[in-house]
Write a protein that binds this DNA or RNA. Structure first.
Lengths: 207, 207
DNA sequence: TCGTGTATTTACCAAATGGTCAAAAGTTCT
DNA sequence: AGAACTTTTGACCATTTGGTAAATACACGA
């Protein structure tokens, strides 16, 4: 084993790394990379700043670790979309899964959005290496469904963009939505509305 | 005149304030509020840092000024949506105007997105005072159209959210779109796609 | 229980950053 | 030209912030 022996992490190590990452997710998603400080993260994690640097190489290391973890979570719902299943069911299911992610993981959504918004300085490699291939693969699947007449013909790339934007909007623009809906819970209504929107869009024209 | 005499700004003042705001828009939209530095703004504006502070009270003052200006621009396309016009034409026209804004003012879109993403710390008053009333008013107009059977019945609030998210996505997530489309220009295809999507969604059911 | 490696803290540092101030350089108007 | 102003600059400062080093406290297997 030529690599530096990784050793198995102790109980304390696992607990503290987790604590730190969770705190960092809070802080980074709320203030952005540059707006977040190690002191804030330390405070939120209940640890001292030097202690945090004992577990991570530095601020950037924490951020990158978070982004790496996130990428997997992020791709999951799309991976689940099954090329063998019923096209309409699969696509509408994907919409709902994505909307659920906004509801249940808003911090992650905002972390991702912030990174992309600033030009993906630390995530571009991931986009190219992980997201792009999956994107191309799933676009081909969708195109196949359309060619088979199972769905209306729409550019699959823009179809996916519209799914992502409409669903993530509820997490990323939450501050605006809270104001406009006077705090009323948006997700149930949003779920109906998006289901209807994409159903109408994708329903194949009767010959 | 009890107010501090405002005087009319000199030619130099007007030029420099404009230079600074344009530079600041570049820097703030690219790095976020906290990520932007006065030195970067000064450099981009071609002025010295103290000179910038001669024209503006401070970093926050610049940011707030930008946000105030932006709010007007931002509301414009929605204001233009005319309650007297043909419902489908008005709504689809609004979609296109909003998409045009993403194409032509991506920096403004990202500045706005960044501010909301971080909880609208400096913009919340504007949202409540300016956006909310307009939002309510236009929702009522749309609801009127639906009640009259001119459009399919959809929650107008979520309809507007979906218009905003799909159109702004092309500016805010540009870094991602560039990767996924391999640099291919997205706007023409997006325009067709969105027109179709909202047309299908809003077409009233034949009785 | 004791020694060894693991965790944590205290005290610190250098660079970056928002901001100030007084002097110098331009403008403008008479 | 010269007084009266606006604009610009160079030198400076206090704070914040990411990060380090060495000493101390702690956990755990033999």
């Amino acid at each position: 084993m030529p690599d530096a022996a990784p050793k198995k992490p102790s109980r304390i190590q696992k607990r503290n790394r987790h604590l730190i990452l969770d705190a960092a997710l809070d802080v980074f998603s709320a203030h952005g990379y540059r707006g977040a400080t190690l002191d804030q993260i330390a405070e939120a994690a209940g640890l001292s700043k030097p202690n945090i640097l004992y577990y991570f190489g530095g601020k950037e290391d924490i951020h990158v670790t978070l982004l790496n973890q996130l990428m997997e979570t992020w791709l999951d719902p799309l991976i689940e979309m099954n090329g063998e299943g019923d096209p309409m069911t699969e696509l509408l299911g994907y919409v709902q899964r994505k909307l659920d992610m906004s509801r249940e993981l808003p911090r992650e959504s905002r972390l991702f959005a912030g990174e992309i918004l600033q030009g993906a300085p630390r995530m571009n490699p991931h986009l190219v290496a992980d997201l792009k291939p999956l994107f191309d693969e799933k676009c081909a699947v969708i195109q196949g469904w359309m060619d088979a007449g199972k769905l209306a013909s729409i550019d699959p790339r823009h179809l996916l963009f519209s799914i992502w934007s409409t669903t993530q909007h509820y997490a990323d623009f939450e501050a605006q939505i809270v104001v406009l809906l006077s705090g009323e819970a948006p997700y149930d209504t949003a779920s109906d509305m998006l289901d209807r929107m994409f159903r109408n869009l994708l329903r194949p024209e009767p010959a």
